[in-house]
């Protein structure tokens, strides 16, 4: 096994192109587990920890361009205002020691349906920026990025450069169910984002389908009902029945399985509860802001 340690983005892309047998490693919180448990023996490790470009974020035109190597601890500290949903999700990632190392880029690279960053990225309408030495950069909407269980749209010669997340225009919420009160992989997770500027709603579901996914029917339904009732403008109370119906539609969007962490039925049920509660909290936040 070789250890490749580029110190610039250009070198990293070159190394990626030259060594298709290399596995990219950033915080190591996924890759090292596979190595320690003898699940994976790649030809090389491509350490992205010394690529300064990846560890930066910047606000650009209503977007935050979040370098793939920015750890969760910094998202919590630095981006709670701009990206509240992602910051809330970040706080549920592993432990403090994990959050200091683990990155959104890593979550995207692993593309586990249980990755905590995915639901808020989907709810916010984030776009993944990937790049190769040969073809340059391209941008992939988050919902198109996840292609299967632990599979993503990255080409073999590409690296994840950044994720572009719209700065929150309204309240966002994130909920995650686990069977203990800290340091737990999601049994199910849900994120929602209200976009009062566009009068739309964003959603993201985690751990309840082969990939993280949105609940488009629920989004359209709620946005439409809010519009029909004039609530986007009046900022009146969110009817309980509406929140409940939204929750049911979110649950319906999932395709969960039974596994050691939870049953499919519970995953679906918990999504309906989380979605109902989260959208109610978000709506109440919107009303209070008004």
């Amino acid at each position: 096994m070789d250890f490749l340690q580029p110190t610039s983005w250009t070198d990293a892309l070159a190394a990626r192109a030259e060594r298709p047998d290399a596995v990219a490693i950033a915080g190591g919180t996924d890759v090292m587990v596979d190595l320690n448990f003898d699940r994976r023996r790649p030809g090389a490790l491509l350490d992205l920890g010394r690529v300064p470009e990846l560890r930066e974020w910047a606000a650009e035109d209503g977007w935050v361009r979040l370098g793939a190597g920015v750890p969760y601890s910094r998202i919590i500290e630095e981006l709670a205002i701009q990206l509240p949903g992602l910051a809330m999700a970040s706080r549920t990632v592993g432990s403090p020691q994990i959050r200091i190392r683990a990155t959104v880029g890593g979550n995207l690279g692993s593309a586990s349906p249980a990755g905590d960053a995915h639901p808020p990225l989907l709810a916010a309408g984030a776009v993944v920026e990937v790049q190769s030495a040969a073809r340059g950069a391209r941008r992939i909407p988050a919902e198109e990025f996840y292609t299967g269980v632990k599979r993503n749209a990255l080409a073999p010669d590409e690296l994840i450069a950044a994720v572009l997340v719209p700065t929150a225009a309204g309240p966002q919420q994130f909920c995650k169910v686990g069977t203990r009160n800290a340091m737990v992989i999601a049994v199910s997770a849900f994120a929602c984002a209200l976009h009062p500027d566009r009068k739309t709603v964003g959603t993201g579901i985690g751990s309840a389908a082969p990939t993280p996914r949105r609940a488009p029917d629920a989004e359209d339904f709620l946005a439409g009902e809010l519009q029909a009732a004039g609530l986007w403008d009046s900022r009146g109370r969110l009817p309980e029945e509406l929140a409940r119906a939204f929750g049911e539609r979110v649950a319906a969007a999932a395709s969960p399985i039974d596994d050691v962490r939870g049953s499919a039925a519970y995953r679906r049920h918990s999504l309906s509860v989380m979605a109902r509660r989260a959208v109610t909290w978000a709506w109440n936040d919107l009303r209070e802001a008004a």
Binding site: F3, T29, M32
Partner: peptide, 26 residues
């Protein structure tokens, strides 16, 4: 060996990390 227990916590450049999840080369 998977960052779940914290028994291997060390400071790396002043930050507490699970040393089982840091590749030696890092």
């Amino acid at each position: 060996e998977q960052g779940e227990c914290g028994s291997c916590t060390v400071y790396l450049d002043g930050e507490p990390v699970c040393s089982c999840l840091v590749a030696a080369g890092q």
